[in-house]
Write a protein that binds this DNA or RNA. Structure first.
Lengths: 144, 144
DNA sequence: GTTGCGCCTGCAAGCTATTGCAACAACCTC
DNA sequence: GAGGTTGTTGCAATAGCTTGCAGGCGCAAC
């Protein structure tokens, strides 16, 4: 069994173990997110899945992504393109700085947010789910 | 001149000084955001404005809010309701912690983010626009 | 292998928000 | 005040995403 298939199977098992049904749609959607090396959009997932299973509906893609998100198997990020992108959670958490002027996207390590997370827990009794943040602003290379 | 009208006029002047035209639509939309004591949605702004100026179009509301956002006159927040809310910028910046379980919304002072903002500027040469953040997670009162 | 429960899916309708285009009107100039 | 320029607006079409509902199908029990 190749690595990619093994990962997909394992993630599928998670679903089954939690009492969710393992449908072909769910397996294909999960595999598409895992196979993507970068951030993938719902529409891209949809067309990949439909290539193998023509009857899927886009709403199933969204509902499944929502489920996987809730199970922390995928994370969701709004990079400001007017559409949300998804990312397989095991590939490591990171955050994005997005320059509103030049559109540059800078990746940031998740550790940068640990102090904030600690403060929120200590002072506000709030367990923040900081996994895939997008912060807008200006990179200093851009004028004004 | 009463305080509210004075504020609206001043904000309108900002538009004109920057070379934007001061249309009745823009003045009414700006006034609606300023008059709102809390966060107001585009649809609410739309119906308020339409009461005085029946011909406005919802797309004008969105376009104007986008403009005002770019000029830092209003800030935009996604509180996870499936619609974005707007807030007059002069009323002070703050952030929100949103519990995904019970839906509670906790307000957080903006100062909490200053260390992060400093780090991003120093280590990543990025001037983050941290004005109205929404952080999802769980309040510790909620089980599991 | 068969059966049945109830979770999941496809479909269609609906919601929020965006965009292209032609017509309009705010503002400047004279 | 009249006229021209061009930034704005209204309209309609469209995109991305969500939701209600009826029927389908995964899974466990036998």
């Amino acid at each position: 069994m190749k690595g990619k298939e093994k990962r997909a199977k394992e993630a599928g098992d998670v679903l089954r173990e939690l009492g969710y049904r393992l449908t072909p749609q769910r397996m294909l959607i999960l595999a598409a997110v895992q196979a993507s090396d970068s951030h993938i959009s719902a529409e891209e997932i949809y067309s990949q899945v439909r290539a193998q299973y023509p009857h899927v509906n886009i709403s199933t893609v969204y509902r499944t992504l929502d489920l996987l998100k809730g199970l922390s198997l995928v994370t969701e990020t709004d990079l400001g393109e007017g559409r949300v992108r998804y990312h397989y959670a095991d590939k490591g958490h990171h955050h994005h700085l997005i320059c509103e002027r030049c559109g540059a996207i800078i990746d940031v390590d998740e550790n940068l947010f640990l102090p904030l997370k600690r403060t929120l827990l200590k002072d506000y009794q709030f367990n923040a789910d900081i996994r895939h943040f997008a912060i807008f602003g200006r990179c200093t290379k851009c004028p004004r």
